[in-house]
Structures are given as C-alpha cells and as structure tokens.
Write a protein that binds this DNA or RNA. Structure first.
Lengths: 180, 180
DNA sequence: TAATCTATTGAGTGACTACTCAATCACAAA
DNA sequence: TTTGTGATTGAGTAGTCACTCAATAGATTA
C-alpha cells in the first residue's frame, strides 16, 4: 500500500499499472489480487485508511485544551501540520477527492462518525456566540478549504513552516473568517 | 471539445477513451488526431482554454467600480458565479489541477499574465491599508481557496444561490478573512 | 509424518486503447 | 473540367493493462 501511494501521487492512479505497484513493492504481480479484489478496491481501501488517519490526527490533544478558541486553534494546527508532515498522503486524498470516483465513498460510516463529531462541536461554538452565526455548512466549508489551501501553500514553500510570524498571520486570517 | 469536457468530468479523463469522445461528438475516431497530436494535447488545450476563460470572467465589469472593497466584492462574485454557471468546466479544471499533469502547465505565459495582473491589484490594496498586511501568497491563497470552496458548496446545494442572506454571510466571512 | 490451509509466484490471456493510414470526400482555384 | 488541398472516415495495429490460474512454498495442526 505504501508503494501504491507513492506511485499514485507521482503518476496518478490511472497511469499507475498494478504491475508497477507490485514491482515497486518487490512482490509478484499476482499477490496484489489476493489481498484486493480489484485495483479500484485497492484505491478505495487506501483512500479510506488515509482519510481516517487524517481525521483522527485532527483531534490529537483536544482533551488538554479548555477554551473554545484554543480548541479551534489546535484543530487548525493539527490539521495543517499533519498535512504538511504527510504530503504524499495528503495529495493522494486530494487527488481522489477531485476525481469522479468518490461518490460512493462519501457515505462511509466511519468517515461520517468523525465528521459529525466535528459538526456538533462547531454547532455548540456557534450557539455559544464564539463563532459567526452563519449556516454550519458555510463555516465547515471555509474551515476545510482554508486548511487545504494552507497545506498546499506550505507544501510548495516549506520554509514558511518555520516562520512564526507567517503562521500567526495565517491563523489570524483563519480565525477572522470564523469568529463572531 | 465540448464532448470531451462532458465525458472527462463524468468519468475522469483517464477512463475516457478517445473513441468515446469521438462517438459522443458524432465524428469519426481518426479526426481527433487531425486536430490534436495526442490525447494529452487535447486535455492540455482544453485545460488552458477553460482556465483562461475563467480568469477573464473574474474581471468583467471592473471598470465600473471605484471603491477597493467594491472591486474586491466584484471579483469575488464574478468568480463564484462563473464557477456555478459553468460547473462542468469548473470541475474539469479542479480535476486537472489535482492531478500530476499540471506541473508543465503552471508556467504558461497567458495564464501568468492574468494572475500577475491580479497580484499587483492586491498588492496595492495591501499597501493602501485596505487588506491585511500579510504575505501576498497567503492572501491570494485564502482568496482562491475560499472561492473554490464556495463554488463547490453551491454546486452541491444549488438552492443556496438564491438565498441572499447566505450570500451576504459568505461574503462577510470572505471579507473578514482579507480586510485589514 | 501427513494433511490442510494460506501465501506467493509469474507466465499467460482477453479486452481495451491510443494512434495510424490509405482511401474517400468537399470544395475551391485555375 | 481539372487539379490541388485540407477534412473526414473507419478498419487496422501494436502495445498495454487488469486480472487469472495452476503450481509451489511455507506454516500450522492432528
């Protein structure tokens, strides 16, 4: 799966033959179909696993933070840090996400569980007057896309990561977009 | 090219055989290669054309607006309106954008010309104290990704488009993210 | 040891695909 | 009418790919 991930990001999953995957992994061509019914099945599994890992990473350390703004900031930094640390996985998820494959993936229960947890957290922050009182889909959307954008920007210019003023400015933009 | 666009968005460009394109366009299989050297060439041309159209659409009516906030709001609404009106084209650009094909496309001169025009416009707004004094890449990035996100949200829930309060709220988030 | 199961191999196959090319067609200039 | 030029056709080709399967290796249990 690690071999597949690398090749998918480098060449795209449609231009990556299963033969290339097995060769890159140092195994035979046939064994791939012992573990995955089809190539699509491999892609699907890889996507789900990666996306779950990503969503879980966003919640690390949440119990240590009290203030809503603090929680919000932690999710924000967890998210982009994980993305930057795992650029290959991140790019893979994005690639799948913008391909016509996803439709059937969206409703997966394990994904749904994690996203609804976040939805309710945001909902309560709105009601507490901490976040803008706007439709939750809008807030979640801004939330999501600003982080995606930040990861892609830092991915292209890695030196920004060590630039504390830059990070603070990015946070300020993000927070201003959401706060009440 | 219209036929190709539709199929690419529906099935992805790697899963769309050239034979399907010509059939859908009601022409023979061979003629496609009379106008385009390869299938990649067709994709590339389609992408460039669409992206240029998109960038141009963002600047429509700019001469009629005076205030910087007004200009900003116009670009914003031009952008998402064009995206929503041309969802197929928009999805296609996004699909290409997140595939490993783009690298060679980025530096195309006609694209570069339009983006630098926008970069300087934003730069002057920063210096005039209208926009946040943060690195321009960050501002442009937020700009770009918030619009992408809005188009995808309205694309999924078209009824939002007629919802004036929703549009105002979206603008408020967008503006708060950028304003000084 | 024998028997049973799973893991692994890699040559082989049928289906599909990007692209070619010789032939025809449409049309306009001489 | 003749000649020339580009548009169009579609059957054909060489190559690629996902997937199969019979055979082997290895591990586990009785």
């Amino acid at each position: 799966m690690a071999a597949a991930l690398e090749l998918f990001v480098e060449r795209g999953f449609h231009s990556t033959p299963t033969s290339a995957i097995s060769k890159h992994a140092g195994v035979s061509a046939g064994i791939l179909f012992h573990y995955f019914k089809t190539k699509d099945d491999l892609i699907y599994t890889l996507f789900l696993e990666t996306k779950l890992e990503f969503l879980q990473a966003m919640n690390v350390g949440m119990e240590k933070v009290r203030s809503p703004e603090g929680k919000f900031r932690l999710i924000w930094s967890n998210a982009w840090n994980y993305g930057v640390d795992n650029l290959v996985k991140f790019k893979f998820v994005q690639q799948i996400h913008h391909s016509p494959l996803i439709d059937r993936i969206k409703e997966d229960p394990s994904i749904a569980e994690l996203t609804t947890a976040m939805t309710t957290a945001i909902q309560t922050s709105i009601e507490a007057g901490i976040l803008k009182n706007v439709p939750i889909e809008l807030l979640m959307n801004n939330f999501y896309y600003l982080i995606i954008g930040l990861v892609e920007l830092i991915g292209k210019q890695p030196e920004l990561r060590r630039d504390n003023t830059f990070i603070e400015q990015a946070w300020e933009c993000f927070w201003d977009c959401h706060r009440a």
